[in-house]
């Protein structure tokens, strides 16, 4: 684990929805793979509380930009008081969905520049002074990616309003 800087935080969606959870996952996975990311499911918790069901999921997508920089996009999903509705063609999840999107950059993810304090110091100078134009470009690209996946998700959920 190198040094991590959070660039985009708390981009959120909250709405009452009926949607196909498996399709949402497929859509986002396809998008991430197309963009060169690997998607991991970090957490999956289906909680039964008396007569209510709540779901909490964490996904993380990673993309190595070069041997020093990695983009990481985190998606947190909470679906509260949900139930499963079966239609003629699909199974839908009906509940209140909250999603938050975060994006950050991990530098020196292979830890080549952190084994001693002098390396750490010079890495700091490199990040702050020498690598600035590249960092700015990376931040812009990451921000675009996070906004794209956020918009894609919003579009997907809104599509179900009209089905």
């Amino acid at each position: 684990m190198g040094e991590f800087d959070l660039i985009i935080k708390e981009l959120g969606i909250k709405q009452k929805s009926k949607f196909n959870m498996i399709e949402l996952y497929r859509t986002l996975k396809e998008w991430f793979e197309h963009q060169g990311y690997t998607l991991f499911e970090k957490e999956y918790n289906d909680i039964f509380k008396k007569d209510k069901r709540n779901l909490k999921i964490k996904w993380e997508a990673q993309k190595e930009i070069d041997d020093y920089t990695k983009f990481i996009i985190g998606i947190g999903i909470k679906i509260t008081d949900y139930k499963i509705i079966t239609t003629k063609t699909e199974k839908l999840v009906s509940g209140t969905i909250s999603m938050n999107f975060e994006g950050g950059i991990e530098s020196d993810y292979e830890e080549k520049w952190s084994s001693n304090p002098l390396q750490l110091f010079f890495r700091g100078i490199y990040d702050k002074i020498i690598n600035t134009p590249k960092n700015e470009k990376n931040e812009k690209n990451l921000s675009n990616n996070v906004h794209e996946v956020y918009n894609k998700t919003k579009f997907f959920l809104n599509m179900y309003k009209f089905k």
Binding site: E3, D5, S114, N116, P117, L118, L120, F121, G124, I125, K128
Partner: peptide
Amino acid sequence: NKFKDKELLQQFYDKYIIQDR
């Protein structure tokens, strides 16, 4: 504890190199 014996270097690092972070 990477800066364990280099407190001055760490102070400079924290204050001038990574203060934004």
